[in-house]
Amino acid sequence: MESSQVIVITSGKGGVGKTTSTANLGHGLAEQGYKVCLVDADIGLRNLDVVMGLENRIVYDLVDVVEGNCKLRNALIKDKRNENLYLLPAAQTRDKDAVQPEQMIELNRQLREQFQYILIDCPAGIERGFKNAIAGADAAIIVTTPEVSAVRDADRIIGLIEAAEIPAPKLIINRLRPDMVKKGDMMDIDDVIEILAIDLLGVVPDDESIIVSTNRGEPVILDKHSRAGQAYRNISRRIAGEDVPLMDLSSPGLLEKLRRLVGGK
């Protein structure tokens, strides 16, 4: 496709929300009408399928495609809710050595023919799986939480992304808790940006609805009332080039809550 983009979503540290972000941004871009493919590059630890609620539809996987056991179109799974969105699942019974960086580049080449956005969910860590996942990517999104361990690992990943000559990685700060920021018990957006010195793509507030929606296998972006869902919707519009201001994350005061209750909002 003309102007297709391969974006790797990575973090270094595990458990900061890479897979959740990949699923939600995929939906967000597909909702805007783009043809989107999500690639689970975490070979051996397949997860994107369950987060998207597509785990029962898998027949073939990424390793089958690169080894030529099946055609790409046989391995692609169409999303339940959005016909613009597809998933290429990871192999569950293989290890990271089953794929080479050159094979990922070739896979991306094939995906570019059919999709405008290819989002690659990268495994945690900085070894083989990471190097495979970033091979041939045009852009990188780094996910972190405002915690020392996650920020430190994000810094390391930014160094490796720059060394791989992928231009200007962008940052998503996940699980921000405005109440803790207010008390001085959590680093705020400016603190994290100052330390990592990269561009901010968006901020996702900590939100219980993410856990609930993941339990159901429905990305939170489909929940119109969720603040995290709204944040992901904003981020996906920014990825597509739109200028969307950061949402106001300050938690509403008691009076505002009452007003909303009375106002029925």
Partner: peptide, 17 residues
């Protein structure tokens, strides 16, 4: 505030990293 401690500790550890 504990976030200032976090920031300062990160700053130092990243210098070495």
């Amino acid at each position: 505030p504990s976030k200032d401690l976090a920031k300062e500790r990160l700053r130092l550890v990243l210098v070495h990293d």
